[in-house]
Amino acid sequence: MTAERVEPIAGQDERDRPLSNRTRAERWSVAFPFGWDADELVARRNLLRWAVMASGALFAATGVIAGLSFRLERRRGERQAVIAAAAVPPGSVHYFAYPTADDHAILLHLPDAGFVAYSGKCTHLSCAVYWNEARGQLVCPCHEGVFDPRTGEVLAGPPPRPLPQIELSEMGGTIYAEAEVLRGL
């Protein structure tokens, strides 16, 4: 089928021609006055506009985290007596709460490195880390995260950061926790 075309009458303005005198394509272009190429440009430009807005949202979220980091304390906690040093012989472990009563912490007496203490909260999803004596490692049972007992560094598994270290001091035969220190990547 071919579209019938009515020749414009000489002198008549194209815009004044009634729709009934136009081809189907012309009627279509009156109803939807957007060219194919312009349509593509509009869509891509809108996509770019949305992408820039999403980019702004991502920047804002990163900015908020940066702002919050100014309020974050790397060291937290106050001096607190943990346990008598003699009660934790070499190769043994003592679980305690520090810096608050809700924060699980681990004190290890390593035969070759002395007393060390770490937060017992896994840096992956905050499960409770425990001392696995048979393996000689700090282990998170949730996703098999493994930490080095000497340094608290991640040895295996999904944890992204080392365990926060708890600074210790010994006075009068008693072990004191001084502060919990966050550690970088």
Partner: peptide, 23 residues
């Protein structure tokens, strides 16, 4: 976010600045 949880303020700011430049 990871650096924030690690308490690494300096590098968090750098990440935010780079993100801002991209925006």
């Amino acid at each position: 976010f990871n650096l924030y949880l690690a308490g690494d303020q300096g590098r968090v700011v750098v990440a935010a600045v780079i993100s801002g430049l991209i925006f």
